[in-house]
């Protein structure tokens, strides 16, 4: 079989990652494969047809129900650059002096549990390297469950409405100047975390570069060991993200590397700040 014979398997999404990459490279230069691929559009559309009117109605209703939250997530999602590697016009601020995570943690007034003296995951991790972000482990999640504080994290979180950049800047300022704010290095490039129980979380600054298909995502790690609560995604490079979330019962704010678009459970936690 030649590579041309893979069109239908590609359309059906039945190639493994290597085959898919090879085929896509071929597809870019093969008009006949492009034309054949277009011919499978109706097949894919047909496979996504509702089986009956009941299913159609249910899915239309689900789509309508999810529209508002999707719009919110879209507004908070930075798109990829069109070209292969768009140069960054704005470079990072001059290097900030590396603050000590432990010092700052001591300033935090969050409740401490029996295992609060456990090794600080962030400070035990190696320094991040640009283009090679730390691939942490699930240590953090484990550490959080060790804390064993039976506080429930309120699930009903709200993503901040960041209609435009001035709104974003205002939100950051609001959190940065909150009475109970704690500022600490995120442990990810030069980025800094501002955490306020009353106003939410802001992460600001230069983060290590990621692959095209990857993004950072913010999480609240509940102290009771329950599943981390997904937050907004955050671009690599110079980025700012605000999350108006309920920190009651939270043990830490974590950042993970996720496939583009983010996930609902963390894939690879790369840093965390304990509260």
């Amino acid at each position: 079989m030649s590579i041309h014979d893979l069109v239908s398997a590609y359309a059906l999404d039945a190639l493994d990652a290597d085959e898919r990459r090879d085929f896509e490279a071929h597809l870019a230069t093969c008009p006949s494969c492009q034309e054949e691929l277009a011919g499978y559009d109706d097949v894919l559309g047909a496979l996504a047809e509702p089986s009956d009117a009941t299913e159609a109605a249910a899915d239309d209703a689900a789509a309508a129900r999810l529209a508002a939250s999707l719009r919110e997530r879209i507004a908070a999602t930075e798109q990829v650059a069109e070209g292969p590697s768009a140069p960054t016009a704005e470079t990072a601020e001059p290097t900030r002096p590396e603050a000590n995570v432990t010092d700052i943690r001591a300033r935090a007034s969050a409740p401490t549990g029996p295992a609060a003296g456990a090794e600080s995951v962030p400070s035990s991790m190696p320094e991040p390297v640009r283009r090679q972000p730390r691939r942490g482990s699930r240590l953090l999640v484990a550490a959080a469950s060790l804390l064993g504080i039976a506080l429930a994290v309120t699930a009903g979180l709200m993503l901040a409405d960041r209609g435009d950049s001035s709104q974003l800047a205002a939100d950051i300022e609001r959190i940065r100047t909150a009475e109970d704010v704690v500022e600490q290095p995120l442990g990810l490039g030069e980025a800094v975390a501002y955490v306020s129980a009353s106003e939410g979380v802001a992460l600001v600054g230069e983060t290590p570069g990621l692959d095209d298909e990857e993004t950072y995502q913010v999480w609240v790690v509940p102290a009771d060991g329950s599943a981390p609560v997904p937050g907004p995604v955050m671009a690599d490079g110079d980025s700012e993200v605000v999350w108006d979330t309920d920190l009651d019962g939270a043990a830490a704010i974590a950042v993970s590397v996720e496939p583009e678009g983010g996930s609902t459970t963390p894939t690879e936690v790369v840093t965390a700040v304990e509260l």
Binding site: A11, Y40, L66, V80, G261
Partner: peptide, 23 residues
């Protein structure tokens, strides 16, 4: 939802020559 966010995020890379938008 994740897929639709990803579609939005990567839409600058979409090339109609490589397949229909629906596909």
């Amino acid at each position: 939802q994740e897929a639709l966010v990803e579609a939005w995020r990567t839409s600058p890379k979409y090339d109609p020559a490589r397949g229909s938008a629906r596909a």
